[in-house]
Nucleic acid binder design. Structure first.
Lengths: 248, 248
DNA sequence: GATTAATTTGCAACATTCTGCAAAAATTGA
DNA sequence: TCAATTTTTGCAGAATGTTGCAAATTAATC
């Protein structure tokens, strides 16, 4: 049996049962659990499912409303968010990107932290609703209803008028030679401006985005001051470190 | 059963019953209370619920809170909102004020109406989430967390750059001699700009606001083109009519 | 303040995952 | 075709995660 067939069948079973277990699949396919585990890891890296201890569950389905979207804070993002918190101190002006990674940071922001948050993300802003000590500056613009962020000229102009201490840049593809890239043109343009407006640029990146590239260019990798990820000791990241980017 | 399934089921039960108890879950899932406790702690760390003694309750009023507020759209406001709809046609650019009256209009907007909405109100914007045909332009600025509207220079500048066909002005105090007034300075400034940006100004006013005044001046009463209210035949309103303001 | 219930902590048993490695299978290039 | 190379697979041992239990601590109730 070809490997690809196996991968397909795993996705099939997952669709059927809303979960798969290593031991079941190992038996059904007559291969070792290690193999299944590697298969599942590969599918997970392709973003087709979520790997959990003992098996896998379907990927958080493309949530529509941003209220749903908030529920999807994966373990990885939680880990990354906690590391990100270490960068924050009273009095700072902080730009939050629109992605779920930045949202995860917002969701665990201590209530007593006194900062100013500039963002173009509804979810981030509403997450900060009962943080008395956080001042929220919201970027105007055209509203993307899929992800509830604003984009366009207004948004860019807003960030052009800000000098921030830190910018938390959500997941983008990062490649040492190609640089930081994004899947959407508008998004890329906004991120560019956020980066230009910030003293320190911190990228929040899950492993699967490392050494990949997408259609729209944002900046050279070296424009990032820090990359926060779950696998700071990964060999690929050492090259980034050598290029002067701090890895956490 | 995978651990992850257990976590999902806990969230499920929480959604259903608005609370979960360790002992119930322990029995249902056939694991020790300790395990459930650890699960709940983990979910709590992910920000998906609030851990309390003996179980868990849903997360503190989060992002949904301002959509919840929408429910107290009184009967009066429903009536006013329905009348307001008659002013809307495909292709218009419409400014929505931040108050609950304008929100009531947004909440009954037909799904097939093709308009552009400019607003500084989070609730209005999120109300239009699944209106495919409505383009939303959102005004940036400082976010007031009490009412979830933006205000300040940014907001004013945003509306200065717009030419709207209609503006729905939420409840303000209206007095024939004193004019239109509001309780908050910032709010008054924003409303001024909205009025200046619009071809037609429609005020949505419950009866108790008529012939009253507050601290901050917005504009002379005659700047309003139309007043929509529940009591169009009230004697006091005839004077407004005589001054050239249409009463509905 | 005494009593009860819930939580925390440390621990041992167990299960899963990770790591490096070697054999087997597939692919490549002459 | 055959040898060299790469990929895939299974395995063993180490590392890590999970679970239930019991004792110690903390919080709630009367």
């Amino acid at each position: 049996m070809l490997k690809e067939e196996r991968l397909q069948l795993i996705l099939c079973r997952l669709e059927e049962n809303k979960k798969v277990r290593l031991c079941d699949l190992s038996e059904e396919l007559s291969v070792s659990e290690d193999t299944i585990r590697r298969d599942i890891r590969e599918l997970s890296e392709r973003g087709l499912l979520t790997m959990v201890r003992g098996g896998a569950i379907p990927h958080a389905p493309g949530p529509k409303s941003f209220t749903d979207r908030i529920h999807f804070a994966s373990k990885d993002k939680q880990i990354i968010a906690r590391k990100a918190l270490e960068f924050l101190h009273d009095g700072q002006v902080v730009i939050f990107d629109g992605g779920t990674s930045a949202l995860a940071v917002a969701s665990i922001l201590p209530k007593d932290l006194k900062i100013t948050v500039a963002t173009n993300s509804f979810p981030v802003a509403s997450m900060l609703e009962d943080h008395q000590n956080v001042e929220v500056l919201f970027a105007g613009g055209r509203l993307y209803k899929e992800s509830f962020v604003t984009t366009g000229f207004e948004t860019i102009r807003f960030f052009q008028q800000i000098r921030a201490d830190i910018c938390f840049l959500g997941i983008c593809s990062i490649h040492l030679q190609i640089g930081v890239t994004s899947h959407f043109y508008e998004e890329a343009e906004v991120k560019k401006t956020m980066i230009a407006a910030s003293n320190l640029v911190v990228a929040l990146t899950t492993p699967e985005k490392i050494d990949t590239a997408e259609s729209y260019y944002i900046c050279p990798a070296t424009d990032l001051n820090t990359i926060i990820t779950t696998i700071p000791h990964d060999a690929r990241l050492q090259l980034f470190n050598a290029a002067g980017i701090s890895i956490r």
